[in-house]
């Protein structure tokens, strides 16, 4: 499917819950209401015309005024790619986990939690994946203060 067809399909199915769409040929994306991420993802995976069966990447981005979660989806069946974005407030970056839809989300969401402090509700095992368990703070946040020591070792 072409990107604009996917965008039209999403718009027809979810209406105002798709906040914005940019179906450019190279990297098409739609902004989704964070509360609706689960039904939208389930639709993208299960609909016969879409079949987004592969979560290529799930990444968090800190834009200073907001935090974004980007889902890059790919269909092995139809060979098309599409991205979803969720805009979250920096103070309370929480949204539902899509682990129940794509198992690959498990580690990706742990990484986003580890580095940006995004809380994924319903995640089966949300703990740090890269940094040590007793690390303080989330380093990819723009206001992160570099530590001077860790367990008495100078940084």
């Amino acid at each position: 499917m072409k990107p604009d067809e996917i965008a039209a399909l999403l718009g027809a199915q979810f209406g105002a819950r798709i906040l914005e769409s940019k179906p450019s040929p190279l990297s098409p994306w739609s902004v989704v209401d964070p509360a609706e991420i689960l039904p939208v993802c389930r639709f993208l995976r299960d609909d016969e015309r879409l079949r987004m069966d592969h979560l290529e990447c799930l990444a968090g981005v800190d834009y200073k005024d907001r935090i974004e979660v980007v889902y890059v989806l790919y269909s092995m069946t139809h060979r098309h790619r599409y991205a979803l974005k969720c805009l979250l407030p920096r103070e309370s970056a929480r949204l539902n986990s899509v682990e129940s839809i794509w198992g690959a989300a498990n580690w990706h969401e742990r990484e986003a939690y580890d580095l940006l402090g995004i809380v994924f509700e319903g995640h089966s095992d949300l703990r740090r994946i890269l940094l040590p368990d007793d690390w303080e703070g989330h380093p990819l946040r723009r206001d992160y203060k570099f530590p001077t020591s860790y367990r008495d070792m100078p940084v």
């Binding site: 940094l131 380093p139 992160y144 530590p147 070792m153 100078p154 940084v155």
Partner: peptide, 13 residues
Amino acid sequence: QYGYHVLKGVDEV
């Protein structure tokens, strides 16, 4: 300079 997670030389430990 910017490696918040990297030990600055293994001779620290």
